[in-house]
Design a protein around this nucleic acid. Sequence first.
DNA 1: AGCCAAATTTGATCTGGGTCAATCGGCTGC
DNA 2: GCAGCCGATTGACCCAGATCAAATTTGGCT
Lengths: 237, 237
Amino acid sequence: MKPSVVTSEPNGHYCDDCAVRGAAVCSSLDAAELREFEHLGRRVHFVSGETVFSEEDITTSFYNVLEGVMRLYKLLPDGRRQIVGFALPGDFLGMNLSGRHNFSADAIGVVKVCQFPKGPFGRFIEDRPQLLRRINELAIRELSQARDHMVLLGRRSADEKVATFLLGWRERLVALNGPSDMVALPMSRQDIADYLGLTIETVSRTFTKLERLGVIEIIHGGISLLDPARVEAMAAA
Amino acid sequence: MKPSVVTSEPNGHYCDDCAVRGAAVCSSLDAAELREFEHLGRRVHFVSGETVFSEEDITTSFYNVLEGVMRLYKLLPDGRRQIVGFALPGDFLGMNLSGRHNFSADAIGVVKVCQFPKGPFGRFIEDRPQLLRRINELAIRELSQARDHMVLLGRRSADEKVATFLLGWRERLVALNGPSDMVALPMSRQDIADYLGLTIETVSRTFTKLERLGVIEIIHGGISLLDPARVEAMAAA
DNA sequence: AGCCAAATTTGATCTGGGTCAATCGGCTGC
DNA sequence: GCAGCCGATTGACCCAGATCAAATTTGGCT
């Protein structure tokens, strides 16, 4: 989908009521710093399918996801797509070396982000090593996830990929919303396929297979994990 | 291969004659800092096949590769292996969150590293934000490479994988040793296969195919790039 | 409610790359 | 010099997952 209007609420920005205040990069800041920090960023929201930034764009901002889900992906010249991750509230985007984003990001459903212009943000970091350390921490965590995903893409079967995805996604939702066996899947089957290095048909068939085995139930907008232990067994080698 | 003797030269350590002084993490330090820094680490070398650290090991050190090549990999419980990268001189290893390495590393041929105990290194970083910034920079670069590799693993054909690998590996060697169309391949075919998410047979067949097409020549310990442009065409979509 | 468009599921068939099985070198040690 | 071994190559065959092709379900819009 094409980017459309980006609406912002430049005056409605207070970290006080921010859902991710304690989780995101912000968790490394004390109350006074947070006060100063909030003037740097502004809340921006995106409608479903809107592109937040593109692979080849010059980086002008950092983003802190406040609400919603984003798909992060890279495209090959012929249109093949690999989704390199899904961003959820608390995730921090925009770190790069080249001065360009090296992947694209768009909204899955409504997304709200806290957007920081690169310059002021960089200056704010300058004399706050604990914020830099926090960003480093997030980068290292992502790196670890990226390596896990390489194992999945390079060495796992379709069944293992889907099972691993369901468990991993559930874990992220649990961390945000608390325990539940209902796993919301706001992304399309195509998104899941492009994340797992499969086709949409294989993803669909594997879901159906899991349902027939009685380990999940496919419900509207997600699945219900009926037998987490069996899914875990499928995910492991 | 099993780990064998680790020899060290605790007194022979001077950054002055270090080949990677200007390239690695060290590039962020001035002469005085480098003097202090060199007392933190010690040179250790490993013979071919020796394991430098294992996935499940508690992290006790950071490593700066000085010489040689290492394979970095993760294993699934049933033995399937995914190589997540190759480390070359200048690469910095050991960053993690959990306190455990999340991949294993072993030497391909003789390897020399500069090993820093975690504690003293952490304290040294403490009041040197430019070193932290340098480490962050390296982490972000790796993250970008990891994403590129996800695209390769998830969405590229065997031919594209091999061609992309040869060009990428050549680029790294060129950055270290200067331009050349001879591409040394110190790693085994199995290593290449496990890096690309293929089998050894497919890698071998693809090499043979490239040679028959006249775009590479398979030589002892590597290949010669006869027609880089054609290989690039194969690598792109 | 009813209609169109898009997403998903299902089925039939095909194929790229895996698996299994010989060879084929090239070093090493004697 | 040659026996033994290990990595690499080659060949024959197979299969997991891709591709192609319909249904079928869902969702948005009058």
